[in-house]
Design a binder for these strands. Sequence first.
DNA 1: AACCTGACTTCGG
DNA 2: TCCGAAGCCAGGT
Length: 105
Amino acid sequence: MASDIYSNILIVLKKIPKGKVSTYGRIAQLAGYEKCARQVAWFLHNSSKKEKLPWHRVLNSQGKIVLSTLEGQIKQSSLLSSEGVEVSDDGKVNLEKYLWKPKLM
DNA sequence: AACCTGACTTCGG
DNA sequence: TCCGAAGCCAGGT
């Protein structure tokens, strides 16, 4: 499979429980491509345009919402808050509290 | 095929 | 804490 990375990303993404968040790098790592955090972001960026994915549960390593578009940030923060995740005005999330810590599979 | 870009991450100032 | 540079990989042009 040429792009099994994307398949894995989706699998990992679906495993993120509601009310929890994860980071690009962590997902990439779980997908088996620890150094492809950018590809994860790229993939979500494209997929979100075509399909509806729980991309809003993915943040950068600092637990901060950093998207290319302001609308995206607003939308993401709204979705997260709807799931019970506290998002500060700056779009930051308390990773200590909401970061999804997957168990070894 | 070559070069550019990006919803990243980490380190140093 | 904030800003910039380097490293990284794959898709787009």
